[in-house]
């Protein structure tokens, strides 16, 4: 399968601080993969994402070497306008990206900027609305919506551009746990229905590991761990890098030491109880 994202030997230093923020970073992500990117605060995650959506080097100055390629386009040599149709970006706070007077107009905003013809725009907006199941919100004003609804509207705006790669930067940090779980499940479904590739920066690993195929951990600008979520979280290094290993996973690891349960996959609390042989019938 072709790689949607290829990062090769990326190094980046911001011009104002002269601190190397991304260091010899390599990553290849095939189509339809869902990757969780984790690491302590200040490890360079946000900078790396900027280098993927083109803000680096197009908007932020600095020392840049290596290459980032998205769907065959070199990020460095592709204008932001073209990248906007290839890489979608959902911010932590949806307030940063919804600002029109109706939900529909908001979803159409990116397409309007690209000058997409009306009938095509209509089609794509409707498609995005139905993908996210927000038909009932289409005519509402964005500022009246709940936080979870706003996050869905912002994501619809991103998907209307039909990006090959979607980046979600801590999408659940402002959501309550149930709403956050619904958003994460939505990502799992969208991956199947749109064939897009997802990179998610997220601290709530109990949620996101349910849909992720892979987990990459960054520390001081470098990639330090890369594997399936179970490989990374059952390894001994994750906690050293400031990764919050979920309580059920810590318990699974403890129980696995005595051979009570396996570690081939991450188990939720209910499954874990059943696997110990002491679960409710």
């Amino acid at each position: 399968m072709a790689n949607v994202l290829e990062i090769e030997k990326l190094n980046f230093t911001y011009v104002d601080t002269w601190k190397k923020v991304v260091s010899d970073f390599d990553l290849a992500v095939p189509e339809e993969e869902v990757v969780v990117l984790a690491g302590p605060s200040g490890c360079g995650k946000s900078t790396l994402l900027r280098a993927v959506n083109g803000l680096i080097p197009h908007m932020y100055g600095g020392q840049y070497s290596g290459s980032v390629t998205v769907a065959g386009k070199s990020v460095k040599d592709t204008p932001m306008r073209d990248l906007a149709q290839t890489v979608g970006f959902l911010f932590q706070n949806p307030e940063n990206q919804i600002f029109m007077f109706s939900v529909e107009r908001d979803i159409a905003f990116g397409l309007e900027n690209l000058g997409v013809p009306r009938p095509e725009m209509r089609k794509r907006v409707d498609e995005a609305i139905s993908l996210l199941g927000i038909e009932h919100l289409a005519q509402r004003a964005p500022h009246e919506l709940s936080d979870g609804q706003k996050q869905r509207v912002a994501l619809a705006g991103v998907l209307a551009m039909r990006p090959r790669l979607v980046i979600l930067d801590e999408p659940t940090s402002l959501l309550d746990p149930r709403t956050a779980a619904e958003l994460v499940e939505l990502v799992g479904r969208l991956r199947k229905e749109t064939g897009a590739t997802f990179v998610i920066v997220e601290h709530r690993l109990d949620l996101v590991t349910r849909v992720a195929d892979r987990m990459v951990v960054m520390d001081r600008g470098a990639k330090v761990l890369d594997g399936t979520p179970s490989q990374v979280l059952f390894g001994d290094e994750a906690e050293l890098y400031g990764i919050a290993v979920p309580a059920a996973t810590r318990l699974q690891k403890l129980l696995a030491k005595d051979g009570a349960v396996g570690t081939d996959r991450l188990m939720g609390p209910e499954e874990l109880a059943a696997e110990t042989g002491r679960g409710k019938k």
């Binding site: 309550d176 746990p177 149930r178 309580a247 059920a248 939720g268 109880a273 059943a274 110990t276 002491r278």
Partner: peptide
């Protein structure tokens, strides 16, 4: 109230004893 249950509480609830 749409509040999640802590994982260890959920585990506890699913034990027979």
């Amino acid at each position: 109230a749409r509040v999640a249950q802590p994982q260890l509480v959920s585990f506890y609830r699913h034990l027979s004893e």
